[in-house]
């Protein structure tokens, strides 16, 4: 939390401007940003505190629970353990960047259809992990889904399983 939160209206539309040569460039949800502080700061803090992209959550801080999962070059990664320096030059997508305009991503749609979320806190991370899985494995079976390590204390797993399979159908144009 080295960076002071700044006005969210400004960050939501206008990218940061590099203030010196040492600033680290970042590409988040398709927009360019610069980070001028500690390069070892976790990406999660930059997302939450600087950009006010609060859909990505803090859960455990040691990369085990998965609440902070984002996509780095399309691959699910724990942002609490990713230093900004390691995110520089990569394409980062958060839960806020998943939808295209008003059109939800098929995984988000499947999630709503299957009534997955209970408390909802881990769900952004679950969805990002599912997006990654479906990219690598377009038709995942139960064993594939079992490799997701994101934790959900409400125990929504039967429904996230269901939603991932449904999303696979949606992404392949099947209407069921």
């Amino acid at each position: 939390m080295q960076d002071t939160p700044i006005d969210s209206a400004r960050t939501s539309s206008v990218p940061f401007v590099a203030d010196d040569d040492t600033s680290l460039p970042l590409r988040i949800n398709g927009k360019p940003f610069f980070h001028g502080g500690d390069p070892s700061m976790p990406l999660l803090w930059f997302l939450r505190d600087t950009l006010r992209l609060t859909g990505t959550k803090f859960g455990c801080g040691i990369g085990a629970c998965g609440a902070c999962t984002v996509l780095v070059d399309g691959k699910a990664q724990r942002s609490c353990l990713t230093p900004i320096s390691a995110a520089t030059g990569h394409d980062i997508v958060t839960i806020e960047g998943l939808a295209t305009g008003d059109a939800l991503h098929p995984v988000q749609r499947a999630w709503i259809e299957a009534d997955v979320a209970q408390c909802g806190y881990c769900q952004a991370g679950q969805i990002m992990a599912a997006v990654d899985l479906l990219k690598r494995t377009p038709k995942p079976n139960d064993a594939d889904i079992s490799r997701i390590t994101n934790l959900c204390r409400c125990g929504t797993y039967p429904r996230s399983r269901q939603a991932i399979k449904r999303a696979a159908e949606l992404m392949h144009g099947a209407t069921k």
Partner: peptide
């Protein structure tokens, strides 16, 4: 559906930390 389902899946549900 859960009244916050659309917020849960889009990262827009506000928790105290947010």
């Amino acid at each position: 559906r859960h009244e916050s389902a659309h917020l849960h899946v889009s990262g827009r549900a506000t928790y105290t930390d947010d």
